[in-house]
């Protein structure tokens, strides 16, 4: 079971990019440059990643896998803290959240023997887990920042009654946790009805048996539920502190 595409066939799919460029030109949406850049970047980045993955598969070295996952965690942390810019000192909480969420969920599926501990499984699954954990952490922390801004008077009123920052922030952390998790929960609820999830689609295109494709997709979806909730929880449990001082004072909020 494998699909082979020549570079020529690959180039033919650019016809549809040409449609997008035409639409952009016709409606003067001024997206031609961005479309070109997007095509170029996706080609270069994925090709480069393809070679890296090929090299790692060939080496069959778990050390290299761990190194690659560490790079993903690093880039994911940097991306998430940029998105959650309104959260003070967010880098460390996000780093911990991504590392632990990835390590624990990968550890569980490996320990249970769902996947073999080989690069072929660890690299793509790790990538999906880290990517989703990153989004969940960033969404949850951004929501926390919004809540802290909106509810600053109530937070201070609660602190003024002798509450610790943890006690004062607890209801906001709960709200933000819901925000971080709800997207994936909704996607999981409607999966297969509204949209075909990516892994299943890929396997079907590659010629796999639909039942196999569905089962693998379910393993991934359920793994993601676990990793996303862990990531959001960890990011929030550590991240709320950035809004407070050690003396349980609400910090001045940065202008967004």
């Amino acid at each position: 079971m494998s699909v082979q595409l020549s570079l020529g066939e690959l180039a033919l799919s650019l016809v549809l990019v040409a449609v997008a460029v035409a639409v952009s030109l016709w409606r003067r949406a001024d997206l031609e440059k961005d479309l070109g850049l997007a095509v170029l970047r996706s080609f270069l980045q994925l090709t480069a990643v393809g070679y890296v993955i090929q090299a790692i598969f060939d080496s069959d070295s778990l050390l290299l896998v761990v190194a690659l996952l560490a790079v993903m965690v690093g880039v994911g942390t940097w991306t998430a803290q940029r998105r959650a810019r309104s959260v003070p000192h967010a880098t460390f909480p996000i780093l911990i959240a991504l590392s632990l969420a990835a390590a624990s969920t990968l550890g569980v599926v490996l320990a249970l023997g769902v996947f073999e501990a080989t690069p072929r499984y660890l690299v793509p699954v790790g990538g999906i887990v880290i990517g989703n954990a990153m989004t969940a952490a960033a969404v949850a922390l951004n929501r926390l920042a919004d809540e802290v801004h909106a509810q600053a008077p109530r937070l201070e009123a609660t602190l003024a009654l002798g509450a610790t920052s943890r006690q004062a922030a607890a209801p906001l952390v709960t709200q933000s946790l819901r925000s971080g998790m709800i997207t994936l929960i909704d996607q999981t609820k409607t999966t297969g009805i509204v949209a075909f999830p990516g892994i299943m689609t890929g396997m079907l295109l590659a010629g796999a048996d639909p039942v196999d494709a569905v089962r693998l997709q379910l393993v991934i979806l359920w793994t993601l539920l676990g990793s996303v909730s862990l990531s959001a929880l960890l990011a929030l449990s550590l991240g709320y502190r950035g809004f407070f001082t050690d003396a349980h004072q609400l910090r001045e909020l940065p202008e967004v």
């Binding site: 008077p153 109530r154 602190l159 003024a160 009654l161 002798g162 509450a163 003396a247 349980h248 004072q249």
Partner: peptide, 29 residues
């Protein structure tokens, strides 16, 4: 700081109730 805030208690400019009944609000601190 927590003990200080219980000794000199701030009344905010606008009502900032916690979720729940009035009695629960009074019992919170």
């Amino acid at each position: 700081p927590l003990d200080l805030r219980r000794r000199a208690v701030l009344v905010p400019q606008l009502p900032a109730p916690l979720p729940g009944t009035v009695a629960e609000n009074l019992s919170f601190g």
